[in-house]
């Protein structure tokens, strides 16, 4: 009876059983093939290693290195162009640009990431609840999100920081809140498409509980767009932090931050190109790298594109 139905190709095949490989491993295998995305990932890793290095230096020297070199003023040599002693030159107060650049990574990269992690979790939960339970719950949550969406996210962040005062925590909260509606929308949309699929009904037919359906069926199937959205969101958040700092609402001097550096340097753009170009390049390359990784992830996480 069993061999009755097997097609010829299956009977004659001597292909061995495929190894058990999870879809995440498959995705990683596909991601590795994408050279551009791997390069972007390499660059981000590089930045992370440097940022952690600077944090360790701060901890070990108890900020004495930071005080002695990173924020040390040397007004006599201000705006000095790149040289062998200072490879990125000196800024408008004679501070070493190279040290300031690498000390600033943590704010841009880590704050951007933390802000997005917060908004992904908050927005994800709100969107999933709205999508899964529908009706009144959906309406209440999503209309509130619509109100937030109606205000341009940068303006919203500025308003929040202006109201609560400028501090690193407030900037983080402001950025996180302004990204919540985007994630809520994304998650709700994917939950809506998934929850009416037949495989959810099949799961109900074998007696699966709501919790099991949410965690084993809905979340794994909606994770891919969320991961992509989050990766791209980090790039946006870095820009927002830089933007807030540029406007003077973000990280306060003398703490180095790319956006703030760019903002302070713009007065001197005719006299010293390096102090604007270098932080600008830093922001641009980081965002490019993150976007490339995001695109790579989008391709890698879609099993239908598999080659």
């Amino acid at each position: 009876m069993a061999n009755l139905e097997k097609t010829a190709s299956e009977q004659n095949s001597n292909i061995s059983t495929k190894k058990q490989r999870s879809l995440w491993q498959e995705a990683w295998r596909r991601f590795k093939k994408n050279k551009l995305a791997m390069a972007g990932m390499g660059f981000i890793m590089f930045l992370i290693v440097i940022a952690i290095g600077t944090i360790i230096v701060d901890l070990v020297t108890n900020k004495s290195f930071y005080d002695a070199y990173v924020i040390k003023l040397d007004l006599r040599n201000r705006l000095e162009p790149p040289s062998s002693a200072h490879i990125f030159g000196l800024d408008e107060f004679g501070r070493d640009m190279f040290l300031r650049m690498i000390w600033a990574i943590r704010y841009s990269l880590f704050m951007g990431t933390i802000a997005i992690v917060i908004s992904t979790i908050v927005g994800g939960v709100l969107g999933a609840v709205a999508g899964f339970y529908g009706k009144l719950t959906d309406n209440v949550i999503m209309r509130f999100m619509d109100i937030l969406l109606a205000i341009p996210s940068m303006l919203l962040a500025i308003a929040i920081v202006a109201a609560m005062g400028t501090s690193i925590t407030n900037v983080l909260i402001a950025i996180a809140i302004s990204y919540v509606p985007t994630f809520a929308r994304t998650v709700r949309a994917s939950v809506l498409t998934i929850k009416d699929q037949e495989f959810i009904e099949a799961a109900r037919a074998v007696g699966a509980s709501d919790t099991r359906i949410i965690f084993k069926y809905i979340i794994p199937n909606s994770l891919a767009p969320i991961i992509v959205q989050a990766t791209l969101g980090v790039a946006g958040a870095i820009l927002s932090i830089a933007g807030l700092s540029f406007l003077g609402l973000g990280i306060q001097p003398p703490t180095p931050e790319w956006g703030a550096m760019l903002s302070n340097a713009r007065t001197y753009i005719r006299d010293a190109w390096h102090i604007t170009v270098i932080p600008g390049m830093g922001i641009m390359l980081t965002i490019l790298a993150i976007n490339v990784v995001g695109d790579g992830l989008r391709d890698a996480l879609d099993p239908r594109l598999k080659s």
Partner: peptide, 29 residues
């Protein structure tokens, strides 16, 4: 009591392998 669905493209969880799909009811029950 069980059900066999019309559309075999929609009735299987794309994130589960064949063995996981078949194991699912055995574990749930």
């Amino acid at each position: 009591m069980q059900i066999i669905f019309q559309d075999p493209f929609a009735s299987l969880n794309p994130r589960m392998s064949i063995s996981e799909t078949i194991i699912e009811p055995l574990i749930i029950q």
